[in-house]
């Protein structure tokens, strides 16, 4: 349970880090919070010759809002995101998702970008970012590019990042007025990776009609996939129990989670379906109550 030998680099700037990533290519690996990578090293499941530690690059951490959009530096600790009032007010789906991520000691060290780059299909943040239509800003010596969530997650533990690239920032657009959020999951023990779960965003108009929905599935396949057909099916009417049930069935009709000792593939599929239904119902409830709160606030100020 001791890691293999490696050459250690602790660059002080992104430029320096990108130069090291370019130099070492497949023999190098970025080290963020280390909460996934160090266990892999301790088990010797990963044996990079060079570790490029991003922890001393202060510019890579931070949470800001610019032109309505949320910008999260890749090295922002998960606990910082969890406790950010800015995030809780504007993007509460992220705050709720984080309550399911590991334990406080791990969130104190684990980074937001590390979770995204690790791309575990049972990880909560990638699912929440996918539901929120987040975009990932990636840099290398060759230049910068921005990748949408749908293109970023390629398969189990694999992203669109090339060996010489680093994730730099995650950019999240605002959600429209009248949006409710929900993150649901089931795990054997609190803090364990989930057996199944879902993120939902439901937007309703003044009359309670659903105008927009986003659904992303947790631990349902090799990537944190969206469910576009089910999203479309929710739009155009109020979301009642039947609509939520039907959308959940549609969202999970084509998924094939793999089974393991904690549950068969079939069990997990059913579990995800229940989690999607509950997420839709809770998100809709919250959307409707923000509309109601808005109306009574308007009524009070008008009267």
């Amino acid at each position: 349970m001791k890691p293999p030998r490696f050459a250690y680099h602790d660059p002080r700037s992104l430029d320096e880090a990108l130069a090291l990533l370019a130099e070492h290519g497949d023999d190098g690996k970025a080290l963020a919070g280390g909460q996934s990578l160090v266990p892999l090293l301790n088990f010797r499941l990963a044996q990079p010759e060079h570790l490029i530690d991003l922890n001393r690059i202060g510019a890579l951490a931070g949470i800001t809002r610019r032109a309505g959009r949320l910008h999260i530096g890749t090295m922002t600790r998960q606990s910082t995101l969890e406790h950010s009032a800015l995030v809780r007010d504007g993007w509460p789906l992220l705050t709720e998702a984080l309550t399911y991520v590991a334990h406080a000691q791990i969130r104190n060290r684990g980074t937001v970008g590390g979770s995204v780059a690790h791309a575990d299909p049972a990880a909560e943040l990638p699912v929440a970012f996918n539901a929120l239509d987040a975009r990932f800003r990636v840099a290398s010596r060759r230049g910068e590019r921005t990748v949408a969530a749908a293109d970023f997650f390629v398969t189990h533990l694999t992203t669109a990042l090339e060996a010489d690239e680093a994730l730099v920032e995650i950019e999240v657009p605002p959600t429209p007025a009248g949006t409710g959020h929900a993150f649901t999951e089931y795990a054997r023990r609190h803090g364990d990776f989930a057996l199944g779960g879902a993120a939902a965003l439901v937007t309703v108009d003044e009359s309670g009609t659903c105008t927009r929905a986003a659904l992303a599935l947790l631990a349902a396949g090799p990537t944190p996939a969206r469910a576009p057909e089910a999203e479309r099916a929710l739009v155009g009417a109020g979301v009642d129990a039947q609509a939520a049930t039907e959308a959940a069935a549609r969202a999970t009709a084509e998924i094939h989670p793999t089974g393991d000792i904690h549950g068969s593939g079939e069990y997990r599929r059913d579990l995800v379906e229940v989690m999607v239904r509950r997420a839709i119902e809770l998100a809709n409830e919250r959307a409707v109550s923000t509309r109601e709160a808005g109306r009574s606030a308007n009524g009070a100020s008008g009267g």
Binding site: P3, Y8, G34, Q35, V38, N42, S79, R109
Partner: peptide, 13 residues
């Protein structure tokens, strides 16, 4: 001041 896992950090860090 923050609780962390010392088995998931390298001494150099």
């Amino acid at each position: 001041g923050e609780p962390v896992r010392s088995c998931l950090l390298f001494a150099v860090q």
